[in-house]
Design a protein around this nucleic acid. Structure first.
Lengths: 130, 130
DNA sequence: TATCAGTTTAGAATGATTCTAAAGTATTGA
DNA sequence: TCAATACTTTAGAATCATTCTAAACTGATA
């Protein structure tokens, strides 16, 4: 609890009740993939009434501060990943199936980066169904 | 024109005026990346009045028949690619910048595919900015 | 503890996409 | 060639994730 406050403060985030609850859930040591909706549902299940707007705000605040990774898996919702290490994913849209690939994947044969641009990140998505 | 009709028919698509116009534009020999919106704008520019609903329907019909690839680049719109070969992309969300990587990219070090699943496609997105 | 900047929130707004159902059109067989 | 049928197109409404608004609230600071 105080570690969480400290953790939030050290990331320039005021430790509000809501952020403490959400951070406590997200950063409990196990990697998680959440959407605003799934997180909201989980919080409700745990009797934490936090508005959906705040869930969105908090996910973005955490993301902006590098505490979450944003995943581009399908066009109909945004996923956030508590594992911020460089890694990739197996994904099944149909089954909402999503697992980390932590192995060191190597992408070989990339052409030159376009002029005056630099690579921010390389995302590999292994789609398991259409 | 008749080739286009033939082309549509051979893909089990009735060659309607709208589909002929859209196919004529999309499959003119140059690779294209479009969204429903961008395609609609382009058609309007060419004095072809086709409803947005039809643009969506047609993109999906073409996609369902394997004439287009669907790209998962950002969560706020769907991109379609006339290049249906196995290939990847450089992408800048900020600048709406999108180019094909046709070189043979190799992804090495993939772990075992999850039990009872099979890989549909591997998508590599090289993000050029956040 | 008062002040103030940063937060939360309900509800409205937005924007891409899908749905509905009515009107239009390609296809088919006689 | 034509009528019957099935497939398409369309405007406008509906949906749904997400963002916005602006008013109430709260953590930090002095």
């Amino acid at each position: 609890m105080n570690d969480i406050k400290q953790f939030l403060r050290s990331n320039a985030l005021r430790p509000t009740k809501q952020r403490i609850v959400i951070a406590g859930y997200l950063f409990d040591g196990t990697d998680k993939h959440v959407t605003a909706e799934s997180l909201s549902t989980e919080l409700t299940k745990r009797k934490h009434i936090i508005s959906l707007a705040t869930v969105y705000n908090t996910l973005h605040d955490f993301y902006e501060n590098g505490l979450l990774k944003k995943l581009t898996l399908s066009a109909d919702r945004v996923y956030f990943d508590t594992n911020t290490d460089d890694h990739h994913h197996f994904y099944s849209e149909k089954e909402q199936f999503l697992i980390d690939i932590n192995k060191n994947i190597k992408v070989n044969g990339l052409p030159k980066t376009p002029k005056n641009k630099k690579i921010n990140k390389i995302e590999v998505i292994v789609h398991l169904d259409k």
